[in-house]
C-alpha cells in the first residue's frame, strides 16, 4: 500500500536559526488515524504547517496523495483540511458564511447542503446564523473543524482539536473523528492527552526536539513496551523489604502494607513463581493480588526522558 502522506528527510530551520525539524521521515497510510504525541515545542505544529504549505521546508520532500507539496502544491493542498492549534476566526463573520468561505478557497463551488450537513455533524447547526463572536470557545474550535471539512478533504490535520474542550465535548469529537474515519478520511491529530491517543488512534508517533522517536501500531506498542506491575497486599505491614526477597524487583508502598513487583511481559520468565515461593518462605501473609498494565502515558514519558 502506498502512503497517502509521505514525509522524507524533512528538515525545517526557522529564520531565527532554530532547527524545529531534524530529518523527519514519516509515512501515513490512507484511512488511518495517527496520533502525534510530543511535549511542548517538540515540532508537531511545525511538521503539520510544513505539510500544509504554511511554512516552507528547508530540505526534504513531502507528498500528499503522490503530489509534491512544493512542485504540485495545488493538487496536494486540495486534498487537505487543516484545523490549526490557535483559534483564529473573524469575529464579525457568521458561522455558515465563514465555513462557505473556506470551501470556496479550496476551489469548490458553493454547496449550502454540504455546509449544513457538516454543521449538523458538529452540532453547530442551530448556531449557523450567529456571528463567530457570539459562540463559546469550544464552539469556535468546532467552527474551525467545520471549515476544514467544508471541502470534503481526504486528509485531515487536527492540531490539538480538544485543547480547552470539556470532557463531554471531547467524547463528541472523538465520535466525529471515528465517523470521518469510517468515511475513509485519513486523520492526523496532535494531542497532549495520552488517553485521547489511546482511545482513538490506530498508530502513534512520538516526536521530541524535532525528531521522530517512534512510530508504531498502538496495540503493538503497548504490548511490546508494556511493563506490568503486580500489587501484593500484606496482612501486616513490613518496615523494609525482607532479606529473603532482596533479589526481586520490589518496591514498598502504602506504608509498608503493599509490595509492588514490576516485571516485563516480554521476558521469558516473569519471575512471578519464584517470588511467590520466596514470599511463602519469608512467612508473609497476603490479602490480595492485582496486576496493572503500564499506560501509553508511562511509555511516552519514558521515551521522552530517554531522548532528553
Amino acid at each position: 500500500m502506498t502512503p497517502i502522506v509521505s514525509v522524507k528527510s524533512l528538515t525545517k530551520t526557522y529564520s531565527t536559526g532554530f532547527k524545529a525539524l531534524n530529518s523527519v521521515s514519516l509515512d501515513i497510510m490512507e484511512g488511518e488515524i495517527l496520533a502525534l504525541l510530543g511535549p511542548n515545542g517538540a515540532g508537531k505544529t511545525t511538521l503539520i504547517s510544513t505539510i500544509c504549505g504554511i511554512t516552507k521546508p528547508t530540505s526534504g520532500t513531502v507528498t500528499v496523495g503522490g503530489h509534491d507539496v512544493i512542485t504540485d502544491w495545488r493538487a496536494a493542498r486540495q486534498m487537505i483540511g487543516l484545523v490549526p492549534q490557535e483559534v483564529s476566526l473573524e469575529s464579525f463573520e457568521r458561522v455558515h458564511k465563514t465555513v462557505s468561505f473556506t470551501r470556496g478557497l479550496f476551489g469548490k463551488p458553493a454547496d449550502p447542503g454540504h455546509i449544513d450537513k457538516v454543521l449538523r455533524q458538529l452540532s453547530l447547526y442551530d448556531k449557523r446564523d450567529n456571528k463567530v463572536m457570539q459562540l463559546s470557545g469550544g464552539m469556535k474550535r468546532r467552527v474551525l473543524i467545520a471549515k476544514a471539512l467544508s471541502h470534503a478533504p481526504r486528509v485531515l490535520f487536527l492540531d490539538e482539536p480538544t485543547a480547552g474542550v470539556d470532557v463531554e465535548l471531547r467524547k463528541d469529537m472523538w465520535k466525529v473523528v471515528a465517523d470521518l474515519r469510517s468515511q475513509g478520511v485519513t486523520i492526523i491529530l496532535t494531542t497532549h492527552y495520552i488517553e485521547e491517543a489511546e482511545a482513538i488512534a490506530d498508530r502513534v508517533a512520538v516526536i521530541n526536539k524535532g525528531e521522530i522517536l517512534l512510530v508504531q501500531d498502538k496495540a503493538d506498542l503497548m504490548r511490546q513496551m508494556g511493563k506490568k506491575q503486580l500489587r501484593i497486599d500484606l496482612t501486616a505491614p513490613v518496615s523494609a523489604i525482607p532479606e529473603k526477597l532482596a533479589r526481586h524487583n520490589l518496591a514498598l508502598a502504602n506504608d509498608g502494607s503493599t509490595l509492588i513487583f514490576t516485571y516485563d511481559t516480554k521476558g521469558e520468565r516473569t519471575g512471578i513463581t519464584a517470588l511467590l515461593n520466596d514470599l511463602q518462605a519469608a512467612g508473609l501473609q497476603l490479602t490480595d493480588l492485582a496486576t496493572e498494565q503500564t499506560s501509553l502515558e508511562d511509555i511516552f514519558v519514558g521515551l521522552v526522558k530517554e531522548s532528553a
Binding site: 500544509c52 504549505g53 493542498r77 490549526p84 490557535e86 483564529s88 478557497l105 479550496f106
Partner: peptide, 11 residues
Amino acid sequence: IGTIYELLSAP
C-alpha cells in the same frame, strides 16, 4: 488575527 493560515494552506 491569524486567519491568513487559510490563504497559505489553500490551493
